[in-house]
């Protein structure tokens, strides 16, 4: 009985085309159109941010005049360049002493449908989005996780973590794990503790990437590559799960 009911529900779903089934040619046409009217289909997630600076600020809206952090660390990921060599994952693991059972960054393999039985492969790296409105920080009862007031990095104060794991549930991106050795939740800190605080300019993953996928820098610096990519009038830039209102500082683009 449940199976039939399930099939009936599926049949309802089929009537809605959905954005995930758009063939790539249509996507391209749509993207071109988006340059003028602002809008892009980004792998199943609809987001409108192209063409004008104000729209680019789709995820960081309200900060177009002045960034709240200096430096305002951000990362742009050029997904079509990723070859899934996993050097970024390895560098992260080694640099930040991430145990075997956990991870701070990962590469997802996607098969994006082109049409009937056709798809193309894309590798999508994921890491903490260091959101401007981080759901994990709001949920933590003891401020064990917090938004660094100077850099905007979402960091951990391990000794305050009670292990309620609310932050893990609240993160829309699955970016947190419980580190048994630290007896606390652990996550990407843009290599703040291991590198940036010691004067290095790049995260371990960005430095290790042989294909130039991960562009790391200061979004509040007009000279930086991340600023120029995110503010480019012709470049399509998107963020993941914008509907959650988290306003990430990790951006995705191609080319």
């Amino acid at each position: 009985m449940f199976k039939k009911f399930s099939q009936w529900l599926d049949s309802l779903e089929d009537k809605n085309e959905g954005v995930e089934n758009l063939p790539s040619e249509e996507r391209r046409r749509f993207l071109k159109m988006g340059l003028t009217i602002t809008g892009v289909f980004a792998g199943g997630t609809l987001l409108s941010l192209v063409s004008k600076v104000d729209d680019v600020f789709g995820s960081i809206g309200g900060y177009s005049e002045r960034y709240p952090y200096k430096p305002h660390y951000a990362m742009v990921l050029r997904v079509d360049r990723c070859i899934d060599c996993e050097r970024c994952m390895e560098a992260c693991r080694r640099t930040n002493h991430v145990p075997e059972y956990g991870w701070r960054t990962k590469i997802l393999e996607r098969h994006i449908p082109l049409g009937e039985g056709e798809w193309y492969r894309e590798f999508m790296p994921i890491l903490c989005n260091h959101c401007n409105n981080p759901p994990c920080v709001r949920a933590c009862p003891t401020q064990a996780t917090y938004k660094d007031s100077r850099t905007g990095i979402v960091r951990m104060d391990y000794r305050k973590c009670i292990g309620c794991k609310t932050c893990m549930v609240a993160c829309p991106y699955d970016m947190r794990y419980f580190n048994e050795e630290k007896r606390a939740v652990d996550k990407c800190d843009f290599c703040w503790e291991s590198r940036l605080s010691k004067g290095k300019k790049l995260t371990a993953c960005a430095e290790a990437c042989p294909a130039g996928v991960r562009i790391f820098g200061d979004l509040s610096d007009p000279e930086s590559e991340v600023f120029q990519m995110v503010h480019s009038e012709t470049r399509v830039v998107w963020v993941l799960r914008p509907e959650t209102g988290a306003r990430p500082n990790v951006f995705y683009t191609k080319g």
Partner: peptide
Amino acid sequence: ELENPWRMAIWMVLSPNLTSNIMWMG
């Protein structure tokens, strides 16, 4: 269930997060 319930007694007093429902519920 909590991994470190003893830390709750300390840090929910010394460092409470007023936006956290877990904190208010507790």
